[in-house]
Design a protein around this nucleic acid. Structure first.
Lengths: 140, 140, 140, 140
DNA sequence: GTGGTCTAGACCACA
DNA sequence: GTGGTCTAGACCACT
């Protein structure tokens, strides 16, 4: 009930040595936070300016990340009020869903195969990363 | 069986959205293939032109990848006969390999999550589709 | 056969009084040019810098338009070589296609209805705009 | 039939991607409805709160639209009883109306074109879907 | 020469 | 206060 009860449940960090552009790092962190439930629909992101200060980068860089997420329908921005996780519920029927699932899986596997990654490694990695991301039950 | 004795046992794939330059993707895939035995010493790589056509990219880009691999002693170019895996022992960077695996897995999972696909479904699909594509046992 | 045989078949113009941001005007003009066939798959757009000079605007503004189109999969950019109309062929089956068609039509009609636009007006406008855009035969 | 005598004969829709601010979209739709007779003098508009709920936007945004319409003498607010269309003759800007119609039509056509949908299909679908929604004859 | 990223700073519209 | 647009200019990686 305190004023900050619904405070932003995400902390951003930037790695200047990773070679990944700052704006992409921000997008990745938002995507991960959405995937594992730390950010849910309608949640508000930090303001462009405040996040820029926090990360010690230029506001334009944050704005670029937010803008790209808006184009991708990941977030919705409302002039003058802020940036929010999109409410859009992708409404797909079972057939379409199956088609998409097969397509992205196939694409993933062939890409992995190009790097000589074995099936076991894939499954291991998905379990590792996935248990953090796609809540499957109660992992605690 | 004879004509294909020196057939290239490697399939290249490029991801235009990964942010990794094409020439680096090619190098990485060659290194990976050497490391896990799909390419062994003396194996012949596709010609610059044929690979460029296969991947629908500029031959200069393939040439750059080959050049850089030659500089690093990964391959040897023999004028008129082609490009071959050199004798040098490749010590593929385990960290780099891990980084790639994590990245493609992460991208896969977040995309799936955006469609509300659960971890179990992912694992099931990979088992189904994967056994046809990815080598399961030891590659040596 | 001249060197410029495949020169860019599109001329951009900006209206500073329309209230539409420059970068959006650029996107709109590319979309229209694609829709009516003046730009087809693989066609090359002007370079960021040259278009910026032509339009007397900052290169960043052009880059922003190109970047947004890249995110939307309208164009593909290749580092160091240029920006091209995307080759992507949306592969959708008849059912999916029908679903999309119905959805965007329904959305269009309800939006128009909110502005009190009659069915006749809609049909007229589509014929007017459409005959320029969706080639239906030979309109000349 | 009596209880709904003063029922609001107008449906509002907002397009978050049009770039037009919500408050302006509301004003435009009211003006359009007045111009074509769906709203006549003395007709009552929805309350600020109910419209805000319907459109899932901030009540302040609706209030701003109503305020601006009051300043322009389009509506009159009667404390405690509601907001009503004023006596003033609305001379809706024919150019503005045309601009809107063109824009939504253009957006519709280019989106359809990106799916390879032809003009004939569009016209057919609009005839099918549209006759249920859009008034066909004269609205006076 | 191509586009990509980032900074700095200005001005505007919306809430 | 919020985000949106645009300019100016720097530096980098890729072809």
């Amino acid at each position: 009930m305190t004023k900050d009860a619904d405070q932003i449940p995400i902390t951003f960090t930037l790695d200047s040595k990773s070679g990944i552009p700052y704006y992409k790092q921000i997008i990745l962190q938002v995507e991960m936070a959405i995937a594992d439930g730390r950010l849910s629909k309608g949640a508000r992101l930090p303001t462009v300016r405040s996040l820029a200060v926090d990360l010690s980068i230029n506001p334009n860089t944050v704005a670029r990340a937010y803008n790209e997420m808006e184009i991708r329908d990941i977030v919705v921005t409302q002039q003058g009020s802020g940036t929010f996780i999109s409410e859009k519920q992708i409404t797909i029927d079972a057939i379409e869903r199956e088609r998409i699932l097969t397509e992205i899986t196939r694409s993933f596997i062939t890409k992995a195969a190009s790097y000589g990654i074995t099936l076991e490694e894939l499954l291991d990695h998905i379990r590792d990363l996935g248990s953090d991301i796609v809540p499957k039950g109660d992992p605690s």
